[in-house]
């Protein structure tokens, strides 16, 4: 009688195939994730899952409006919209295009969804460096043909008479000697300051600079005025 021994190796081969298939599926998942997040759409994983209410933040903040002198300030962040008007004997670099700003006395520039730095003082905007989804220069829309965002740089400082920044400007702290009018809680408290040290903490709102006035409208957590009168308002 013949006895035939058959070695079972198929099980191990199938197991190997399963592992290979699993690795390939994981790779496809990771690769798709990379392509989607890098090339398409705004993806915010945690932002979509953890969305808290801002009401607790609003309850812990003070409504604030002020018309003050213009400080020297540098702000970095995301701005829904920046509008400015000014001139410069230099160039504005938008992506790989350069626009000369010296031809027109007052150039009107709009930056949509700007992400970057802006630094200014009473006279000039010294730094605009970042990215925006769209740039409008004197009514002409300039956008990148290939990319979602366009790199923006001012080659030199810009003399300006108008600067408006959208509704979600965040400034951790502003502290400087200034003069002007401050309204707190919808005018319930109003202060006239005259060359006094004003400190504002955790400002969130809109900023407008025009007619040599620095206009803030939003929410703060803390206000301190030191000078002729000492005022301290906290949440």
């Amino acid at each position: 009688m013949e006895i035939e021994y058959i070695k079972k190796e198929h099980g191990r081969h199938r197991s190997n195939h399963h592992w290979k298939f699993l690795v390939f599926v994981i790779f496809l998942g990771v690769f798709s994730f990379v392509i989607y997040t890098s090339f398409y759409g705004d993806f915010d994983f945690t932002g979509n899952i953890i969305q808290g209410s801002d009401s607790s933040q609003e309850e812990k903040s003070i409504q604030f409006q002020a018309d003050l002198t213009i400080p020297q300030l540098s702000i970095e962040g995301n701005f829904d919209r920046i509008e400015l008007r000014g001139n410069s004997g230099s160039f504005l670099q938008v992506g790989d295009q350069r626009f000369y700003l010296g031809n027109v006395t007052n150039n009107y520039i709009t930056l949509n969804e700007y992400d970057g730095e802006i630094a200014f003082n009473e006279e000039k905007i010294s730094v605009i460096e970042g990215k925006a989804t769209g740039v409008i220069i004197n009514g002409i829309l300039v956008t990148s043909q290939t990319k979602e965002t366009t790199k923006i740089t001012f080659e030199n400082s810009l003399s300006y008479d108008l600067l408006e920044m959208g509704n979600e400007v965040s400034i951790k702290k502003i502290s400087y000697v200034t003069s002007g009018l401050i309204n707190v809680e919808d005018g319930k408290n109003a202060f006239v300051v005259n060359e006094e040290q004003v400190t504002i903490n955790d400002f969130k709102g809109s900023i407008q600079i025009s007619n040599k006035k620095f206009r803030l409208d939003g929410q703060i957590s803390d206000l301190e005025i030191l000078g002729n009168k000492n005022v301290n308002i906290k949440v």
């Binding site: 994730f33 990379v34 997040t37 890098s38 090339f39 993806f43 994983f45 990215k131 990148s144 290939t146 990319k147 979602e148 965002t149 790199k151």
Partner: peptide
């Protein structure tokens, strides 16, 4: 190409 790459990615 100037795209922003997510930290999670």
């Amino acid at each position: 190409s100037g795209r922003e790459i997510d930290e999670l990615t």
